[in-house]
């Protein structure tokens, strides 16, 4: 569909033209994104290494089973699916904005940029809710033969193995409650660190998209004669979606 009109036998490396046939700005955006991919990759691989090195890790289906306004209903995967679809949808509106830019259709670019920004804000709202829910959660944890109430933070992980009824009664504690042992302390740091770093990318992506929207509205790209800035902002935005695909895999699915 996107057949290029490049004649075969073009000598790309003879000078006088970009050997990659794309502008400097787009090349540099790609190389920035590649380096960012290694940053995220290093974070996720470090997380994987620690997770592989312990016998028991937090079970994502237990940790992420809540949904706003659903009370204590056990809904594993539901909320994070919503977040994933929000980000996929905003990726589609972004690529549609780029498409309208190719057609020099300013109204179309404006419409799809607004939708993309709304998608980004919706995702950030979801993440804010999820973090709040995790930090303020109350879980009974057996610490030094007594029960403490913990949320999930960078210093507290209440998602260890469950303590049996017998153990609880032997310790003289109420045996009808769900009590766990503390889980590996690294869980909170990795979860909040990596989703936070990703969320910060989403936040800066929203800011970039907002700037692009304003510049479109002011007619800067029409004056310039092309909408390449929308393409560059789009590359960044799709990268944010791409990273989420892997965060989703590593933290929520497996």
């Amino acid at each position: 569909m996107s057949a290029t009109t490049i004649p075969s036998g073009t000598k790309w490396w003879n000078g006088g033209r970009s050997p990659f046939n794309i502008s400097y700005g787009k090349v540099m955006m790609w190389y920035f994104l590649m380096s960012d991919a290694f940053t995220f990759g290093a974070f996720l691989i470090s997380y994987g290494t620690i997770r592989f090195s312990v016998n028991h890790w937090a079970d994502p289906n237990q940790v992420f089973n809540a949904f706003p306004f659903a009370g204590h209903a056990n809904l594993p995967l539901a909320f994070v699916s919503l977040m994933t679809f929000i980000l996929i949808a905003s990726s589609v509106t972004m690529v549609l904005a780029v498409h309208e830019g190719h057609k020099m259709n300013r109204k179309g670019v404006e419409k799809y940029m607004i939708l993309t920004i709304i998608g980004g804000l919706a995702f950030l709202g979801c993440q804010a809710w999820e973090w709040t829910h995790m930090i303020t959660g109350e879980h009974k944890v057996l610490v030094n033969r007594a029960i403490e109430t913990w949320g999930t933070t960078v210093t507290h992980n209440p998602w260890g193995l469950a303590v049996s009824h017998e153990t609880l009664s032997k310790l003289g504690l109420a045996a009808n409650e769900h009590v766990t042992t503390p889980g590996p302390i690294a869980f909170g740091g990795y979860f909040f660190g990596i989703t936070g770093f990703h969320g910060f990318h989403v936040f800066s992506g929203v800011i970039i998209n907002l700037v692009m929207y304003i510049k479109t509205k002011l007619g800067h790209f029409d004056q310039r004669g092309h909408y390449e800035m929308i393409e560059k902002a789009g590359l960044y935005w799709h990268f944010v979606d791409l990273v989420w695909v892997f965060v989703f895999l590593c933290f929520y699915l497996v």
Partner: peptide, 26 residues
């Protein structure tokens, strides 16, 4: 319109006129 933004770019890829491929990917 051609959106070649720099003299070093000699061939602009022909962008699809429809959005079918985007929705298919979605």
């Amino acid at each position: 319109s051609s959106h070649v933004s720099s003299p070093e770019i000699t061939h602009a890829p022909e962008h699809a006129s429809g959005t079918g491929r985007i929705w298919k990917t979605f």
